[in-house]
Amino acid sequence: MAFDSWQAFLAMGGHGVYVWSAYGVALLLLSGTVLQVRLERRRVWRRVSRQARRGRQRGMDRGAS
């Protein structure tokens, strides 16, 4: 451990503002990336299943006529 206490860890020898803001923005950007990918995944699958349903319907129409 490079620090004696949690207080010392948070203070970062007086450089806490700089260190934690850099890590905070990193965490924000990285979790934002993960969230974006997950939302995109849902959106894309919804679109694919819509297309598939439409395709099946078209297939049935053709089968009926």
Partner: peptide, 13 residues
């Protein structure tokens, strides 16, 4: 953040 030693010039930044 927790285990690497601080730099002798720059400290923890």
């Amino acid at each position: 953040l927790g285990f690497a030693p601080a730099d002798y010039q720059q400290g923890n930044s």
